[in-house]
Design a protein around this nucleic acid. Sequence first.
DNA 1: CGACTGTACTATATGTGTTAATACAGTTAT
DNA 2: ATAACTGTATTAACACATATAGTACAGTCG
Lengths: 123, 123
Amino acid sequence: MMNIDPQSRTPIYEQICRSIIELAANKLLLPGDKLPSVREISKQYSINPNTVSKAFGMLERDGIIYSVPGKGAFLSEAHDDVIRRNAELEFDQCVGTALKSGLDKAKLIEIVENHKENKGEAT
Amino acid sequence: MMNIDPQSRTPIYEQICRSIIELAANKLLLPGDKLPSVREISKQYSINPNTVSKAFGMLERDGIIYSVPGKGAFLSEAHDDVIRRNAELEFDQCVGTALKSGLDKAKLIEIVENHKENKGEAT
DNA sequence: CGACTGTACTATATGTGTTAATACAGTTAT
DNA sequence: ATAACTGTATTAACACATATAGTACAGTCG
């Protein structure tokens, strides 16, 4: 379900956030859907409950999920807008960085158009 | 000359690398040009010499500069290609992340075209 | 009641970033 | 040769973020 790599240099809590965002983006998780519990994720991926809880806390602060102690965590109704806006802001920063490094907009558009998935993945 | 913010969460040595790359991209630094010495940068920006040295080491490992003990560090002849390739790879990864977050290529191209500089800067 | 939920807390270990203080070897100009 | 510069290496110390471990509390549900 989620793709977690404990060896990666990107923090585990951030990988959890990204995984849930991907699930939502791919409609594998719908508004109102209950997320796996902190302890479930903790067991299944051998992650400390505190780390999972940290990820949930960040997702809630961003308005992507809402947590109800005693019940669980659920995908927010407005998650689409939040995720979209965050992704747009992040990508816009990437554009700024690339331009500062000397690439021009035409080159960036070319990279976007030629982008193939499964680039860094194993077969 | 360089834009260094000690309060930023991005490491200082990485900020130094980016600054030098920007200088090269803007032709303010030409192939063969001598960079300011480790101790000069250290003094001017109140950065530890070790941190500056770390940045120089990374730039040299990437082939962007070459260091000569006793003489100084100089902008490599082939820095253009290296910087360009690195920037392209980095941006391509950004594209992948954005697509996974649910944005489509048309939206990404729109963001590139509408990108304005001086977005996160003070007036 | 019992088993689940999210959350909070302290403590610990680890890795990274940064500074500090030296030290060494090579270059350059006087 | 001496002095002043260059990049580099080493060791130590500190701060911070990440992650784990263990425990605890309050709310929910069958």
